[in-house]
Structure formats: C-alpha cells, structure tokens
Design a protein around this nucleic acid. Structure first.
Length: 448
RNA sequence: GACCCUAUCGUCUAGCGGUUAGGACACCGCCCUUUCACGGCGGUAGCAGGGGUUCGAGUCCCCUUAGGGUCGCCA
C-alpha cells in the first residue's frame, strides 16, 4: 500500500519551528517511500481562523520548499485544492464528522451529556505501537479512572480535535501519523476511536520535541520559535532545513552538511531519536554561513539585495555592475544576511559613520600626513584596481617607514566607517577613485 | 495528584557487551593574513547517581534524580 502521511497544522497565524520540523519529517518520509504528502488545515477553532493565518503556514512551507501532493492551493478554505480526498480544510468537512458521530451514537459508543456528546472510552489500558518510541502501554490517569469518557462534540455543536483528527486521517487513508511527542498520551484516545469506527489505526511515529537552548519548552513567545523569524533574519531555507534534519535524526556518518536529496535517500522512521533536542542557534548560523559561502552568485545577489533593502539601503540607485562587484567582495565573509548591512552597507551610503572607538585609535594626528600621502599617491594611480592599489599602499608605507597596517586601518575606517569588512584593496577598487578620494578627504578634514 | 516519554562533552550527535568513547558547533592556543572572515594544526570538555546481570556495561534490568509531555466543551 502506498504511504500517505499528512501535516495537519492549526492556523494560528504562526508556524512553530517544531511544526516545521514535523512537516519536514513527514515530507521526508513521503519522499523516501515514494508516498503522498498531504497538507490538511485544522481550522475547527473558528474563533482564531483567518485566511491570513493559513497563508503564514503555506508561505512557510513553500519557503522551505516542502511541497505537498494534496491540500489547499491558497489560504481560502472554500478555494481550489489539489488531491482526491478534499476538502482539505476541516471547516469544510462538517458533514463527515456529523455522520461519524451519528454512527457512534447509534452503536451506543457515544452518548449525550449536558448538550455535548461524549465518547465511551475504553476502561482498559491501550497499547500504542510506536515506530519511534516502541510499544507504549498507556494506563489511565487518576482523572481518567474517575471518568474515562471524553467530549467529541461540544455543546455548541462543534466537533473537537480528537474526533476530527481521527475521522480525517481515516477518510483520507492516512497510513502513518508522524507528529510531535506531545500527542503520544492522547494517542490512546485516537486508537480507541479508530476501533470504534471498525478500522485499524494508522502506524504512529511520535517525534521528540524541540526545546529552547536552556532546555525549557519552546512556546510561541520565545525568540526563534517562529519560522517567520528565520525568514526575516535572512537565513537561507536550505540551511534551516538541513539544521532541522539534524535535530532528532542523524546520518550516522559524521556529516553535517547534507543535501535534501541525500537525506531523502537515508531517512527512515525507526532511526529517529527518542529524546528532545535543544535548538542551537549558533550551529544553525554556522551552517547558514556554509550555505552562503557555496551559494551561487545570482541567488546570493538576489537575497543580499533583499537584506539591504530591509535595512533601508536602496541598491537600485547604483549601477547593477557596481552592486554585483560590491557584493562579490562580501560573499563568504558573513554567516547571516542580517549582518550584511553592517558589513558592506558602506558601498551604498553617501556618508559613512565612523566607529567611535576605531576613530579614536586610527584618526590620530600622526596618521594624518600618512593618510594624506596615500591619498596623493592614489589620486595619481591608474588603473584603479586591487593589485596596483595594494602595491601603492605598500610602497607608500615603505617610504614612510611604517608597516602597511598603519595605513590600512585608517584607510579602511575612512572608507567603510568600521574595522571589519571586505578586502581593503578590492573594496577601494569597487568604490572607485572618486568615492575613495572623497572619503579620504572627509576623513582628513575630520582629523583636523 | 496520576499517567507517559527521555537521559553520552556547554549544545547537536556516533556508539547497538570488549573503543585510547568518534565527529560537528561553540570555546582556547598556534599558523596563514591588508581588517574581519575562510582555511590548516593542536587543545579543554562527556557516559546524571546508585544498585544489579555478566569474565566484562556508555550499551541489558531495577531504583533514584532531573528534564519534557499528557490528563480541556484548546489544537
């Protein structure tokens, strides 16, 4: 039988990083087995539903590149979808739930209680066969001992999660339920429901949770809990995806950087780790740097321009060739696009702001004549290119009897405003003689 | 309160009865170097604790401890 898995998020206006990882593992398993990845929107909670909230999920999955074989095409619950098991919004599946509830009622497996409908839950422990955790024998808690039955339809007529989730999985022919471990205890209810409908439940695989770096639960308020924050910080989706693969799963061959197709090849449910993992932003950032370094230049250019735009730096004011040359000197030198404005923003500003500490150290009275001497030499330099610039600087340094670094630091500060940046000779060449002389003149004036 | 899951360097992990406990991030040195990075070399650091089983335990069992999850007319 063909594998059918699903990712079934609730549209809350937020895509949790753990949810993204759940989606990824489902997607990986579908691709590994040649099965079908279904996206189903669990929008039963009408109070907090909106098309916008659904779009957050769709956009997040699309950004990651996790394409679904069946599911909605847009955030519109009544809009078009793909697949033969629709609709894929629970808000559009009311009749199914009603029909199923009536069946339970007529078989005496459910009953009305104070306007709500409750399911007659098993009084015996239920064994949950789990592909990740193993066989779990779920005993009743003390509260469940007192009343094991649970509500499946609220008194306002709305069916609840446990019911709709099971009905949909059943009717959509889901073969494997891969979800967060927070659902493990509830799975007993789901299994009982499947049996009440006269079918065997799907196979379950409960994956460990992602925790904050301090080991506490990652809640909506925590920084980094939302996928959107990574999209906005300028992470590359392939890096985020790669990092997420390494949380709770391992290729076992000491490799860290893996292409998605390699993971698809190797991925399987039984090797998923059983313990929770802490989210290590530093390692993700390192991995992102690895991806940026190897990113093809066109894509780097595109993402870099976006990042500069977000920081209010308008690259369209400059010739395309200038922008590309400028970005070439920055590529591979930082790990996050959000670092770019500070790193290479000087290319796209009319005035540079000097780092106060550096200015105090490098814009000294004794450096003024040295800088003036270099300015003079550069003004006569032709062509204004990296190698000649380097030779000129070294020659001037030698004439002055100082190390090149004595000239390098104030020159960099004058042209970039800070102490870290692209190769000095290359950045000067890209800026061009006119801008460089202007900036040196300004610095000389500042030094006084 | 009850029930369930989990436990190897600070973090992510390899290990599936016999290993000098391996790798990666981070950190610390040294080298490279026009800054910052990259890269190269080296280093610090771990089997939560206690009982068993076994000739032999990080690996199997039990207890404790710790962390996480669940017990809703939320999903």
């Amino acid at each position: 039988m063909k594998t059918r898995v699903r990712f079934a998020p609730s549209p809350t206006g937020f895509l949790h990083i753990g949810g993204a990882r759940t989606a990824l593992f489902n997607w990986l398993y579908a691709r590994h087995t040649g099965g079908t990845f279904v996206l189903r929107i669990e929008d039963t909670d009408v109070a907090r539903n909106s098309q916008e909230a659904v779009n957050v999920i769709l956009n997040g999955l699309r950004w990651l590149g996790l394409d679904w074989d069946e599911g909605p095409i847009s955030g519109d619950a009544t809009g078009p979808s793909k697949g033969d098991y629709g609709p894929y919004f629970q808000s559009q599946r009311k009749e199914n739930y009603q029909r199923r509830v009536e069946a339970l009622l007529s078989h005496g497996l459910a009953y009305e209680d104070q306007g709500a409908i409750k399911f007659k839950m098993s009084r015996e422990p239920i064994v949950i066969p789990d592909l990740v955790v193993g066989e779990v024998r779920r005993e009743l808690t003390d509260r469940e001992q007192a009343d094991p039955d649970f509500v499946i339809v609220r008194s306002d007529g709305q069916p609840v999660f446990h019911l709709v989730n099971v009905v949909d999985d059943l009717e959509m022919n889901i073969t494997h339920v891969i979800r967060g471990e927070d659902h493990l205890s509830n799975t007993a209810k789901h299994i009982a429901l499947f049996r009440a409908f006269g079918v065997e439940p799907p196979r379950y695989a409960h994956i460990p949770l992602i925790l904050n770096s301090d080991g506490t639960k990652m809640s909506k308020r925590d920084k980094g809990a939302s996928l959107t924050s990574y999209m906005e910080e300028g992470y590359a989706p392939e890096a985020v995806l790669n990092y997420l693969c390494l949380l709770g799963w391992s290729p076992k061959n000491n490799r860290e950087k893996l292409s998605l197709s390699e993971v698809v090849e190797m991925f399987d449910l039984p090797q998923i780790l059983r313990h929770n993992a802490r989210f290590d932003l530093t390692k993700l950032t390192w991995l992102n740097g690895e991806y940026l370094r190897e990113m093809d230049t066109e894509r780097f250019y595109e993402l870099a321009v976006q990042a500069l735009g977000r920081a209010g730096l308008d690259t369209t004011r400059y010739p395309v060739e200038y922008v590309k040359a400028a970005l070439d000197t920055c590529k591979g030198k930082f790990k996050l696009f959000s670092e770019l404005p500070a790193y290479g923003g000087f290319y796209f500003k009319d005035e540079v702001q000097y780092d106060p500490e550096a200015a105090k150290r490098d814009f000294t009275p004794e450096n003024r004549p040295r800088l003036a001497r270099l300015r003079d030499a550069l003004s006569r330099l032709e062509p204004f290119e990296p190698d000649p610039i380097g030779h000129t600087l070294k020659a001037v340094a030698q004439e002055l009897g100082v190390k090149p670094a004595v000239l390098v630091h104030p020159t960099r500060l004058a042209c970039c405003g800070n102490t870290a940046g692209p190769s000095l000779y290359h950045l000067l060449a890209v800026l061009g003689k006119t801008r460089v002389l202007q900036r040196l003149d300004k610095a000389l004036a500042v030094i006084g």
